[in-house]
């Protein structure tokens, strides 16, 4: 895994933080939207944007990883990811 801060490091040094997801506005969304956000997941394999943490340096970042074959396609610092994230479907 290539950490945007520390470069390539053994995958053992990283912790997985789950898929990057957008929280609906709790004040205005319906109960159904909220429970969908809290519980439901995109369980099928795909290229997904995920939170990862380099444990030794405590650095959180985003990786685009194919969950079918464990290939990391790209990694981004969280800030850059926030600006550039697009749904994986729209990738080449």
């Amino acid at each position: 895994m290539v950490c945007p801060l520390n470069g390539p490091r053994p995958v053992l040094e990283f912790a997985y933080g789950g898929e990057v997801r957008t929280m609906p506005d709790p004040a205005s969304c319906s109960d159904a939207q909220w429970s969908d956000y809290v519980f439901n997941r995109s369980g099928s394999p795909a290229a997904k944007f995920e939170w990862w943490c380099h444990i030794a340096s405590g650095f959180w970042f985003v990786a685009l990883r194919d969950t079918l074959n464990d290939k990391v396609i790209a990694t981004y610092p969280a800030q850059a990811a926030r600006e550039r994230l697009e749904p994986p479907e729209s990738l080449p």
Binding site: D36, F39, R41, S42, G43
Partner: peptide
């Protein structure tokens, strides 16, 4: 393989693999 089959009928669940 449940999430993949559920995609065929459009059901969403908390299942992760």
């Amino acid at each position: 393989f449940t999430p993949r089959v559920l995609d065929m009928v459009g059901l969403h669940t908390p299942i992760y693999v």
